[in-house]
Design a protein around this nucleic acid. Structure first.
Lengths: 334, 334
DNA sequence: ATCTTTTGTGAAAGCGGTTTCACAGGTCGT
DNA sequence: ACGACCTGTGAAACCGCTTTCACAAAAGAT
């Protein structure tokens, strides 16, 4: 609050012997100023340690330099390292481009409240949404002309700009890998299939069955919700209906760990009896014993891509949704 | 950009038949306005779907409602789920108090550049720093009157306001637990002891030796850097100098996992031959097999506490640093 | 009934930049 | 040498809200 009074344009203008308009031009890179005078302004800025007041600047120009990063606040945020990494990627790229990220962790049910309010208060130049459950709000904002990028494939594909991991390809690769390891009965533990990514991973799994000419079975599909416990539950269910199951693709590492825990509790071993592949290639996969074979997605890159799409949009460049490739990291579990 | 023109005070004032000053009073909860006129204003606001322009408001009032959350951008940010959770906690509490979090993930070496620049541009009402390596910048900002909260104990204790986990107590509890389990030679794998938290966990370890009357040894202390690989290296080192080591306190779960990996590679088992305790009680500890006994710290609460200290400061309330308790979660590894 | 005090309100001056617009002076073309 | 064009520049309006200040009306004091 009690910031020592900082100089304003008025002061710079006076010391440089020019008008405030000229100061503004110089500081905004307008090249129509004579080099000599520009130099004078820059010297004054230097000498007085001037720092532009971004709030005033924002008010006058209509550009705040702020990008909202909106994350649905269900509890998973607090546990899942995923979003932290994506956010870090976003933030870093934005900063490199003189933009700031406004982090909004907000309860789902208030997405129509506080967040909406904010995004419409003219305080941000754009918004990046994470893991969209519903896109009603996004639609409204887009209609109002707010640049938007969605991380993760949006539920209804209304030509939003989004970035996502190639979930389909990842699911396909994971499942094919299990077949190639000799598995005959490969099950899947899905995430909440209301989420697009979980759905796509499942689709990839199905595709692998089609391509491999194996016989799919509905009871080889067990639903989880990306949590450790749900992975355990789903694995028990799979073992129940298919005692002879010899491969499992879990839609994330956490559930894969749950599955392995159950398998081992029953005295079976991984990968000898049952092979397991996870998704994310998180720290968990890397540190688990046996090491968990997993589909790597580059979450930081995901964030960076989102930020770059935003920047392009702000620059008025036409952009298209972007899908990032995955890579299967083979370890001991399959 | 092309936001549909939103109403301003001028419009509200006209429809309500009052002056702009009155509109401002009503919208800022000034109770000196006659209820009837206040009602008229509120009706107008309602009717026109008015949303205050926060930028203009910030310029005029000097309060932006923005709190910077500054995170040193070394790579760990992108891997460690820790900071994501803390940040989420911060953001949530701030939002509940009508404040927004400005996330700044910035390279360490530029803490004197971009970030400093920003924090001094009058755009934020306060700053919350994570994992401070050096506090030169913080000192300067504090001197300028910017409210500051530090998450983690600052290196030089210059009566900054901070929140931290009870690292000392955690290290003490972990080590005592190992002794109570019958361990005689308990080693420690530290984090980078240049970091206060790593140092404090080590101090706790030493204290346990003192209290237990056991014989400490310098070679039972191996330095890591919180990474999985460093945990492996440190464990090898410990086994090298103390083949008979029967207990290890690793200063975080990741290194604990590294240690366990090495122990198992050598054909020994956990907890039979060597007992291991980690720190964080992260997902890794919960999903590992054997389950990792670990010192739980509530990271979300840490973020929330930081936010609350900031809010208190903004309200002009005198606040004190806050230390959050830890809890030992006992699983199979020790 | 007269003289303070309150209470409620609006006019107007900022907050610190950006941007439009008009204009002086120099450059060209013919 | 004269009108048509650029270039570079400053005055001033403006962005939308906050806050001071003066003042009228109502309430309280004597």
């Amino acid at each position: 609050m009690a910031q020592t009074a900082r100089p304003t344009y008025a002061v710079i203008a006076k010391t440089a012997g020019v008008s405030e308009a000229t100061v503004s031009r110089v500081l905004n890179g307008d090249d129509s100023v004579h080099p000599d005078r520009a130099k004078r302004v820059q010297d004054a800025v230097e000498k007085l340690g001037y720092k532009k007041n971004r709030v005033a600047s924002a008010l006058a120009s209509g550009r705040t330099g702020l990008i909202a990063v909106v994350i649905d606040d269900d509890l998973s945020i607090f546990q899942d390292p995923f979003w932290g990494s994506v956010t870090a990627g976003v933030s870093r790229v934005l900063m490199e481009n003189e933009l700031q990220s406004l982090l909004m962790v907000s309860p789902v049910d208030s997405v129509d409240g506080a967040v909406a309010h904010y995004l419409q208060s003219g305080e941000v130049d754009g918004a990046i949404f994470f893991a969209l459950h519903s896109d009603a709000l996004v639609k409204r904002l887009a209609k109002q002309g707010l640049p938007i990028v969605i991380t993760g494939t949006p539920p209804s594909n209304d030509d939003f700009i989004f970035v996502d991991t190639d979930n389909f390809g990842g699911g396909l690769a994971a499942t094919k890998h299990l077949f190639s390891r000799g598995c005959q009965k490969v099950g899947i533990i899905t995430g909440d299939t209301g989420l697009t990514d979980a759905k796509q991973r499942l689709d990839g799994y199905h595709q692998a069955y089609r391509e491999g000419g194996h016989l799919p079975s509905k009871t080889l599909v067990a639903n989880g919700d990306y949590s450790f416990e749900s992975g355990k539950r789903a694995m028990r269910q799979l073992l129940d209906s298919h005692p002879g199951i010899d491969g499992v693709f879990a839609s994330n590492d956490l559930m894969a760990m749950g599955a392995i825990a159950v398998i081992q509790e029953l005295g079976k071993t991984v990968p000898e009896h049952i092979k397991v592949v996870g998704f994310d290639d998180s720290l968990i996969a890397q540190t688990a014993r046996p090491g968990l074979t997993s589909v790597r997605q580059d979450v930081v890159a995901l964030g960076e891509a989102a930020a770059n799409l935003m920047i392009a949009q702000l620059a008025g460049i036409e952009v298209e949704p972007k899908i990032l490739p995955t890579e299967l990291v083979v370890r001991e579990s399959a």
